[in-house]
Nucleic acid binder design. Structure first.
Lengths: 207, 207
DNA sequence: GACGATCAATTCACTCTATGCCATATGTGG
DNA sequence: CCACATATGGCATAGAGTGAATTGATCGTC
């Protein structure tokens, strides 16, 4: 019942150079919905905002909202799918003979870049603050992260071979480092994200 | 709105040697509920089982069910809180000057022990199979794991000092190794859990 | 043994998410 | 202008979760 393969779906959207009018319309409406939702969530909190309010704010019925996002949390957590897409693309462009540890570190440069852009950063920090304040959204985020780790692991195993257990463990370990760095730096000193990631990675490697 | 500090609460229950009749009753009822739920979930699946059915099966109303478990998934995922308690106890008994990496590895012996006991293993494998088959429960499990990692990190930082970022990263990395080992071994070859954990840890350390 | 207090359980009503179904509107191409 | 596909809205429903008031059982006290 959960989202119809977000990554492959979105990837298709990105791969096709010029999207059809219909698809562009769809993306625009989704953007509208997230914008409205973000505003309401920041003002009233996630739990105190109903889907009806979001839908009404974007000028549509609740039923239509669920045609664009299959769950209330998707409207906010779905953003990560797009970043995840970029990360996977970045990972695939890495040289095949590179140690996966380094490939993964390189993959996460996408996130660092993302937060380096002031435009995106402001938006993302707002999202992060809502997620941090809402257990339910934190759960959704963790679920997405888990899904993402699985996809990355499968990709690496398929393209480079190797033991699934080992690859999965390394993917999880690197992700844990990034996550720790995110938690520590993001709200107060987002510029330090990169160094924090490297510090965490170094700590794990010679722990 | 989420669970009233499961760990501290349960710890209190365990610390106090003889529980009051009321509390023992409460624990017994919770056990009944999980037993009924487990049976229904295995037969019909998690999504196809309503809270009403579980409550009726245990001879109570839905409202009363929610007095014992604050959410439907708690009835199944809540088991991990107890193991988590044992793990934290095991961690606290570790020598203070031991490298945290080793302390954490020792802490996870509790899980290995748990699956070594044929009695508990059968029960836990049933739970695991349901969780594996149900995305929603997987999400709940991830949330519990995240909470647990936070508690462990805070404990280590408080008792041994050190950089939060580093401790959190190491905790996450070790947990990721255990999780990978669990995923690979549990359903098919549970006896190999210990070796798999060590293999994953070794792989991360000299990746 | 009766009485009153206390706490658990039940009942009822309600909100909100999510989904299926069918009618209707909004285009789009012939 | 019409037929057709698709997007949308409205309606109905199931199920999770919660609050409030009521009933009921248990226990100490006299």
């Amino acid at each position: 019942m959960w989202h119809w393969m977000p990554y492959t779906c979105l990837r298709h959207n990105v791969a096709v150079p010029d999207l059809s009018l219909k698809e562009r319309k769809r993306i625009a409406i989704r953007r509208d919905l997230t914008a409205v939702a973000l505003e309401l969530f920041l003002r009233d909190g996630y739990e105190n905002t109903t889907v009806d309010q979001i839908a009404a704010g974007a000028g549509m019925s609740r039923r239509t909202f669920f045609r664009y996002y299959n769950a209330k949390d998707d409207v906010i957590v779905g953003k990560w799918d797009l970043i995840g897409l970029d990360m996977i693309t970045a990972l695939e462009e890495r040289p095949q003979d590179e140690p996966i540890w380094d490939s993964l570190r390189g993959m996460y440069d996408v996130v660092i870049q993302h937060y380096a852009d002031p435009q995106r950063r402001e938006q993302s920090l707002a999202v992060d603050s809502i997620v941090a304040a809402t257990p339910a959204l934190r759960h959704s985020y963790l679920a997405r992260r888990d899904l993402f780790e699985g996809i990355v692991t499968d990709l690496l195993v398929k393209e480079r071979g190797g033991d699934w257990l080992v690859v999965r463990a390394v993917v999880g370990a690197v992700t844990a480092c990034v996550e720790a760095a995110r938690d520590e730096t993001l709200q107060t000193k987002p510029a330090m994200l990169g160094p924090a990631i490297d510090r965490a990675l170094a700590a794990v490697r010679d722990a």
